[in-house]
Write a protein that binds this DNA or RNA. Structure first.
Lengths: 163, 163
DNA sequence: ATAATACTTTACTTTTTTGTAAAGTTTTTG
DNA sequence: CAAAAACTTTACAAAAAAGTAAAGTATTAT
């Protein structure tokens, strides 16, 4: 379980634009320079962010990229999902079944269930963190932080199935 | 950010042994068969688990693997860390600096800070989940689950540095 | 129009991760 | 002691991810 390079670098590029706000744009070269990345790699990252609708591009002379929404309206969840996909593969049991066509735990896979719970849990954190929070931390040195007082309860798997 | 194949398969192999308890052992062939994995791949997974001290091996005829501790004494954090390493690279800023030798945000990297917070947060969940919880869920259909009532607070970065 | 600027797309190389194969070592049984 | 069972190690092949390069397309200024 690891944060990918694409996620880290892509987030950093987006933060550069987030600091500028939706009304200002920067060229790939400017963004690459600010983050110490190569121009081709920055192009790739920005292309992914554009396809996800997080930034928009203006082509031609005087063009560049701008963020599509305000920093306080974009969550870390959106950004990391755009760059790295979901934490758990949607069809884990069919994709990672080893030699067999289907997971041996096809009827009830508690590993999958616990990983799904973890994904939900992580999503909660990521949805509670906006780009604005990160920008503010840069300026003030204070970062919003989960308080590690997690309430654990027993929930029925059946609840999830029936909604 | 993704759960790796090694983490998922490794966890499954360990769970097979956890269900048997520390006093019973199974051969690689038996474990592979139960999880629908190839024998060479299972060997690799069990080798990693052995080096991490989570299982022990008895060689020779009649040998096999057994878990070293009870299922309720092994957390998901230990298992996933053994199989996949930490969520965030320890020296992210020096390793993923792009073209430069050091991260451009070397003095204060709020991206790194927020990812460290995420790692701590995830660790909390993983430390609260034992192999026994997963085994129980297999039997009963009930899985312990974080209640999504996360208390967010503002914490000083300085707090982290000074302890 | 034309040239310069700047995004876009495709293809390719390198590195890492996954997964397999085979030869080696240890222990037990006959 | 020899053979079989079973773990161990090393090396290798295949697939995915990371990162680079180059040719293409759109826009604007002259």
């Amino acid at each position: 379980m690891r944060i990918s390079a694409l996620e880290k670098y892509g987030l950093r590029c987006l933060l550069v634009l987030a600091k500028e706000g939706p009304d200002k744009q920067l060229s790939i070269a400017e963004i690459a320079e600010k983050e110490g990345l190569s121009i081709p790699y920055s192009s790739k990252l920005l292309s992914i962010l554009r396809k996800a609708g997080l930034v928009q591009a203006a082509r031609g002379r005087g063009g560049g990229f701008s963020i599509t929404r305000r920093a306080d309206d974009i969550t870390l969840f959106e950004v990391l999902t755009a760059l790295g996909g979901p934490l758990v593969e949607p069809h884990h049991c069919s994709k990672y079944a080893g030699n067999l066509k289907e997971c041996v735990h096809i009827d009830r896979c508690s590993v999958h269930d616990v990983l799904d719970n973890l994904a939900d849990y992580v999503e909660q954190f990521l949805n509670d963190t906006t780009l604005e929070d990160i920008i503010r931390a840069d300026k003030t040195g204070y970062l919003k932080k989960a308080d590690y007082k997690i309430i654990l309860s027993k929930n029925s798997l059946q609840d999830k199935l029936t909604g």
